[in-house]
Design a protein around this nucleic acid. Structure first.
Lengths: 364, 364
DNA sequence: GAAGGCTCGGCATACGTATTCATGCCTGTT
DNA sequence: AACAGGCATGAATACGTATGCCGAGCCTTC
């Protein structure tokens, strides 16, 4: 069945090029893919025609032939906030980083928000649609464990962002949350704070928060500072939760001179609550967060925080996933964090309030 | 060529299902797609086998057959900031909204950041990879005009987010920037401010900013307030630029009691600069932004701003694009904005400082 | 001068799905 | 009883690309 010579109304195919260039379709394919089997002269002729016709390879056909999609899928698991603008800023940074890492390697990126209630059926579809999956979620993965094992049983390639734990199915990439929590706490202790509160998940399931808390604990015990149970409050990672948790803290009445937030959103909420109660940050209470989201630097005072290396994280996630896809040896990785000192902790104080090392108590 | 009965190591195909169910491949396809031509009994048998084998339709083959991809592409044009975390938060909200709108309609979403220097070649590829394109960019599109016209000539379906202007190639969806600028300015005037500064693009090319500025101008002239050239400063939409522009404003020495920022990032930068110079917001200077990014509500004081309806925007973008793809009549749209009053303007002041209507001058 | 190697390009085919056309069976009607 | 007609399904094919295999020239070499 020979292709008609007339300019097809739709997109040009390799048959159209072949006809115009006076060669066969396979030769066109070979020429465009740079096969050495095609003479330079023929190749040039074909390329000229292809350019003239604005030809591009049909990805669907190409993918079908190659049996892969040249696409990765980023699945973002998030609590159903119902408000679009409330996407966790940290995820956003990851999204940007993953996108660029994919582009660098010539992969397309499919993005999908997985409402927690969402049927995992989509994942299966995605698994045919993409060569591999990147799972991004702050929350605890325990509820997804069944899904993960199903993915593995199905032979789907995937990597997971989150706490790196033994016994978790699949490969995990994550920040060193424990060390981060430790660094943040040590910094506060070095500034003379002795009554430290921790907001966000001393007892909740989210593994990242647990790790950060354990770093917090370690720093305290190393400095021989007592851990006060009244100064531990749970919170999910929203500003509102941080605000509410801080009110709870104030209600309890135990004095504190520093707050470690398990995330920046929590820390920002805490800062607002304190300011609302006319408690000066950092003069009376130091605040430190975790993540280094954009809003952290924009806050007043700018928030001291533990930065996660999102750029590197995206690269490692993509690279690890690709190794897995290509059946190269791959393994989980723990990424270092970095303390970013701004003003909310009381160090670097360009504001008129010097960081007095003396212990303070929170006034109501 | 009959498919071998053995369990193929890779993914199950419709032939595998057919063999197990004792029917032919076309019947499987028909059954799964819900064709009335297949008897209920046969359908049930086929569905059972399909489920048992974890079968899903191969999207590449399906798309090839259907001649479409069931996928939309979101192209984000952004100044090369080199820092991933610096993705414009407004775009992020749009991304979330577009993602959900796509998911609702059963479309996949491909996301790609187009560095300004990036070769538009990618777009062509995308155009085969996706059924349509959503173009998202704050900047001025003039430099892309050639590209846009090329897209049209190529018959590519696309919609553009941005200022809705006559003469722009293609369909545009955008907020009513002019009205937004007007509302923000009127609000400040109603609060008694009379020396209003505008930061961000009175003269630059970005059409959105120009529209916002023209609304600013209209509000001033309606209230018979003079427009002071010394109080207009250009800035791109980053916090640093807003900060720098405000310093320039202070350097010029002309008194002002309010600042309209062409975007929230600019307004936040301005606020920081003022606070750095010990100028109280809102007591001495009111500040209003535009976009209502998450950081606006988190700032101190919380930023009064003009909110764009990102949720609706995503829906309209997707819907319009799909209409275009299906050759239904479609047209550009202007979306209403909404004034969100927080504290940075001086209204709603729960802080001890009442909004004195008396004119103030900025101290250095 | 003939044989072998090398270069280049065409033929056939496969990837997995969805539709058009053809076929056989069953039912109902005169 | 014979035929029309509807119904369920199978056979064939198309979507566009990429590659194994083979054949046709051409050059080299003894």
């Amino acid at each position: 069945m020979e292709k008609l010579p007339g300019r097809t109304p739709g997109k040009a195919t390799s048959f159209d090029i072949a006809y115009r260039a006076g060669v066969s379709q396979p030769t066109v394919s070979r020429a465009l893919r740079g096969s050495p089997q095609v003479s330079e002269e023929t190749r040039k002729r074909i390329l000229a025609v292809a350019q003239q016709l604005n030809y591009t390879v049909d990805k669907n056909a190409s993918n079908l032939r190659f049996q892969h999609s040249n696409t990765l899928a980023l699945l973002i698991f998030e609590d159903p906030t119902s408000d679009d603008s409330a996407i966790n800023p940290f995820f956003v940074a990851m999204l940007g980083s993953v996108t660029r890492a994919c582009a660098q390697r010539g992969y397309d990126l499919l993005v999908s928000f997985q409402e927690q209630a969402g049927d995992w059926h989509e994942q299966y579809e995605d698994s045919r649609r993409a060569d591999g999956l990147i799972l991004l979620g702050y929350g605890d993965y325990l509820q997804y464990r069944v899904r993960l094992e199903r993915l593995i049983a199905q032979g789907t390639h995937f990597v997971r962002w989150g706490a790196v734990e033994a016994g978790q199915p699949g490969l995990s990439i994550g920040s060193d949350n424990c060390q981060g929590g430790y660094d943040a706490t040590r910094h506060l202790i070095a500034l003379g704070r002795r009554q430290l509160a921790f907001i966000g998940g001393a007892s909740r399931g989210c593994p990242e928060f647990l790790d950060r808390y354990s770093g917090f604990q370690r720093a305290l015990s190393e400095a021989s500072v007592a851990v006060t149970p009244e100064l531990q409050v749970d919170a999910i990672t929203t500003e509102e939760a941080g605000y509410a948790a801080t009110e709870e803290l104030l209600r309890r009445g135990a004095p504190f001179d520093a707050i470690v937030g398990a995330s920046d959103l929590i820390a920002l909420g805490a800062m607002h609550c304190l300011q609302e109660h006319h408690i000066d940050v950092p003069a009376q209470v130091s605040v430190v967060g975790f993540d280094d989201i954009p809003a952290a630097g924009l806050a007043n005072p700018p928030l001291t925080t533990i930065a996660q290396n999102t750029r590197r994280a995206g690269e490692v996630l993509v690279e690890t996933l690709l190794r897995q896809i290509h059946n190269d040896p791959a393994q989980g990785q723990v990424l270092p964090t970095r303390l970013v000192v701004r003003r909310s902790c009381g160090a670097n104080a360009q504001c008129p309030v010097p960081p007095h090392p003396a212990a303070r108590s929170a006034s109501r």
